[in-house]
C-alpha cells in the first residue's frame, strides 16, 4: 500500500500583483489529504482558503497571481507524483476534471445558463471518456441519479435557472463526479444554502466520498460543518496554517490560541457570566496587516515578547502541527 498522501502541500506561498503593490495572501500553507479522507480547511474570511484551493487547481487569476514558493504534490492514479505548482498548464488542465475536481460556493455562476444541465454534464463526460452523444446524455442522467436529483430523466433537460440553489449544487457535484476524480476540492459548497438543504448536501458528499474513495479538501468557515464532515482539520490564519490535527483533537484539545479562541466564539459555547447572562467569548479586533513575528499576536491573549520577532515555525509531531511558540505554556 502506498502511504504517501494524495495531496501534499508544503510551505505554499502565493503572491498577487495589485495596483497597490505585491501582496502575499498565502505565505506558509502545509497540509495533506489522504485517499478516502476528508480534510476541512477553516479560517476567517480573507485568511487565504480560496487562494490555496485555486493555486492547487492551477486556477489563480492570470497574470496577477502566481505560486511564488513551496510545492503542491499530487499523486496521480498511475502512482506518479507531480508538483502541481510547476506542472505545465496543459498537463494541469488534463488533471483538472479527470483526477481533481472542484465545486464552488455559488453554483449559479459556475454553471452555463444557456445550456441544459444534461448537456453540461454530457460535455464534461465526453471530454474524458470516448462516448457518443446519446451515451453521454445517458451517463449525465445517471450522474443526476447519483446525486439524488428526483425525476432525473426529466431534469437533464432543465436549465440551471429552473432549479433551486440546492438542486444546482447537486448538479455541480454531479459535474465534478462525472469524471470520477480521486481528489475533490469543495470551496464553501453549502454556505449559500439553508440548513436543511445543507444537511442534504453534506450527507451526499459524505456518501459519494465513501463510495468512490475520494480525498476531499472541504473549505468552510462553519465549525459545525467541520465537526460534521471532517476527519482532520487544518486551521488557517492570515495566510498561514496555524494548526492541524484530527477533528477530535482540534475540538477537544486545541493547541493554538487562535483555534481555541475561535471555538469559544461559538454561540453554543456561551458561558454564564456573574450576572447570569450567557455571553460568548470574542476575539478582539480583526485580521490586521502582517508584520514580523506571529500574525495573531495583536489579538492573542497569550502573546508575549517572544511572539513578536522572527518567523514562527510550524512545529509538527505525529498527526498534529501547531504554529505557536508558546503553545506548551499557553495550555499548561
Amino acid at each position: 500500500m502506498d502511504k504517501s498522501p494524495l495531496l501534499s502541500i508544503r510551505d505554499l506561498e502565493v503572491r498577487f500583483r495589485t495596483e497597490e503593490g505585491e501582496v502575499t495572501p498565502v505565505r506558509g500553507v502545509t497540509l495533506s489529504v489522504g485517499a478516502g479522507e476528508t480534510v476541512a480547511l477553516v479560517g476567517e474570511s480573507g485568511s487565504g482558503k480560496s487562494v490555496t484551493s485555486l493555486a492547487t487547481m492551477g486556477l489563480l487569476p492570470r497574470p496577477a497571481g502566481r505560486v511564488s514558493g513551496g510545492q503542491i504534490l499530487f499523486r496521480k492514479r498511475s502512482g506518479e507524483t507531480v508538483d502541481l505548482a510547476t506542472l505545465p498548464s496543459s498537463d494541469l488542465r488534463k488533471l483538472r476534471g479527470s483526477e481533481i475536481a472542484m465545486i464552488f460556493q455559488e453554483p449559479m455562476t459556475s454553471l452555463n445558463p444557456v445550456l441544459t444541465v444534461g448537456e453540461q454534464i454530457a460535455e464534461s463526460v465526453r471530454l474524458h471518456m470516448s462516448l457518443g452523444h446519446a451515451a453521454a446524455l445517458k451517463r449525465a442522467e445517471e450522474m443526476l441519479e447519483l446525486v439524488e436529483i428526483p425525476n432525473a430523466r426529466r431534469r437533464v433537460h432543465e436549465y440551471p435557472h429552473q432549479m433551486s440553489g440546492g438542486m444546482r449544487q447537486r448538479v455541480m457535484i454531479a459535474l465534478a463526479m462525472s469524471c470520477n476524480p480521486s481528489l475533490l476540492i469543495a470551496d464553501e459548497p453549502t454556505t449559500a444554502l439553508d440548513v436543511t438543504i445543507q444537511a442534504q448536501i453534506l450527507v451526499l458528499i459524505e456518501r459519494l466520498q465513501k463510495e468512490l474513495g475520494m480525498g476531499v479538501l472541504f473549505i468552510t468557515h462553519n465549525l459545525g460543518v467541520v465537526a460534521e464532515i471532517a476527519d482532520r482539520v487544518t486551521v488557517m490564519y492570515a495566510g498561514q496554517v496555524v494548526e492541524t490535527g484530527t477533528v477530535g483533537a482540534i475540538f477537544r484539545t486545541p493547541r493554538h490560541p487562535y483555534t481555541s479562541a475561535l471555538l469559544n466564539c461559538l454561540p453554543a459555547r456561551a458561558q454564564r457570566g456573574e450576572d447570569g447572562r450567557r455571553v460568548v467569548q470574542s476575539i478582539p479586533g480583526s485580521i490586521g496587516p502582517v508584520g514580523d513575528g506571529c500574525a495573531f499576536a495583536p489579538r492573542c491573549s497569550q502573546a508575549a515578547d517572544v511572539c513578536r520577532t522572527g518567523s514562527i515555525m510550524l512545529e509538527a509531531e505525529m498527526e498534529r502541527s501547531v504554529r505557536c511558540v508558546r503553545w506548551r505554556e499557553a495550555f499548561a
Binding site: 440548513v195 453534506l202 459545525g224 465537526a227 477533528v247 453554543a268
Partner: peptide, 12 residues
C-alpha cells in the same frame, strides 16, 4: 439539521 460544533455529537 443544524450541524453541532462538536465531533462527539450524533451526526446528521
Amino acid at each position: 439539521a443544524s450541524p453541532k460544533a462538536d465531533p462527539d455529537a450524533p451526526k446528521i
